[in-house]
């Protein structure tokens, strides 16, 4: 690990504590609440300044909802989202009102999966990329033009493209435009929700390289949400794994991939098809389906699919523990199981 990637000396930029987001399930003509989707169900983690924290898990496990809580696109049900501002003041994003959040918008930005949906097709690149600047008070058009030109160059696009519309660009180029827009306000934290999932492999490589380079140059902090384990492994300093709304494991990337401690993490890794026909196809270790977050199983949410489950797992919910420094895991038997992978 190089010095620039050493995170242990760094301070947390973001601290998420006991975050919950439940969506009501309503029924009948009076929209009576008949239950809750536990989309985010007791999630705690830190994001250190200058690092990339990868957040992985299968569809519906709560990755996007967690991101949306941080951006306050949805209001958390409970918990804290502590953010350290530029002046080292610590604020709880979960508690702030819309007005109080406004000055923080510049510091936290988002990159979306769908480069097509996140840009306004009727606005030129100048307006798309410059909009957050305008919102944040840069009313001088000439000043905005300079900044947009600079941002387009930063993401590898020609400044002359400024007056074109998004439809004239390929998927990879549109994702670059989305990145330029997110970086326009000099954010310190960038939440990227599946930023390369919609891209072809060769374009994906270009965008990943760009994100890595920008991080180095601008000292950005990334929360990188994805479901592709190879991509997350490639870009992240540390990786957090979610299952049915809960964080089940978090560790430095190399540790997580070489010595996972949660049976779900290990099964997830085994399920990734390796692009080498000489590596024999692994046995399918994970059977059944992911349970619904509206009706999670008793005890450990993973117990119906876990091959190590015991009676205790059915009744007692494991807490997130830290069996070795920096390695968090939510399993009763994390210390005993040997899940060493082939990687």
């Amino acid at each position: 690990m190089t010095a620039s990637h050493s995170v242990d000396t760094k301070q947390p930029l973001l601290q998420i504590r006991d975050l919950r987001k439940f969506f009501p399930i309503t029924a009948g003509v009076f929209n009576k609440t008949v239950g809750h989707v536990r989309a985010v169900d007791d999630v705690s983690f830190d994001v250190f300044e200058g690092e990339t924290l990868g957040l992985v898990g299968e569809s519906g496990c709560g990755k996007t909802t967690t991101s949306r809580c941080i951006l306050r696109a949805v209001d958390p049900t409970s918990g804290q989202i502590l953010f350290r501002r530029k002046n080292d003041e610590i604020v709880d994003l979960a508690k702030l009102t819309r007005e109080e959040l406004q000055p923080l918008r510049a510091e936290i930005q988002m990159i979306f999966q769908d480069p097509f949906g996140s840009l306004n097709p009727r606005m030129t690149l100048f307006d798309n990329v410059g909009e957050p600047l305008l919102v944040n008070g840069m009313t001088n058009r000439a000043e905005r033009t300079d900044r947009v030109a600079e941002l387009l160059k930063l993401v590898g696009l020609r400044p002359e493209f400024m007056h074109r519309f998004p439809h004239a660009f390929s998927g990879g180029q549109r994702q670059r435009i989305g990145i330029a827009r997110a970086l326009s306000t000099n954010p310190r934290l960038v939440v990227a929700d599946e930023p390369v999932s919609a891209l072809d492999v060769s374009v994906q490589a270009q965008v990943l390289n760009l994100l890595l380079e920008l991080q180095k140059r601008l000292g950005l902090t990334f929360l990188f949400v994805a479901h592709d384990l190879s991509v997350v492994r490639h870009i992240s300093d540390r990786v957090a794994v979610m299952y049915v709304g809960q964080l089940v494991e978090l560790a430095p990337t190399k540790t997580l991939f070489s010595r996972p401690r949660h049976p779900y993490t290990s099964a997830l890794m085994r399920a990734v098809p390796v692009p080498d026909p000489r590596i024999p196809v692994g046995e399918v270790t994970l059977k059944g389906e992911v349970p619904s977050p509206a009706n999670p199983p008793s005890g450990c949410y993973f117990h119906p699919r876990c091959r190590f489950a015991t009676e205790r797992c059915k009744v007692e919910a494991p807490a997130l523990r830290e069996p070795s420094p920096g390695h968090f895991v939510r399993c009763h038997f994390a210390d005993e199981l040997d899940l060493t992978t082939a990687f």
Binding site: A205, L229, R233, H234, F257, V272, V274, P275
Partner: peptide, 11 residues
Amino acid sequence: SIPSIVGETQV
């Protein structure tokens, strides 16, 4: 161009 599950990271 594909990131591998075994290769070097962050390059």
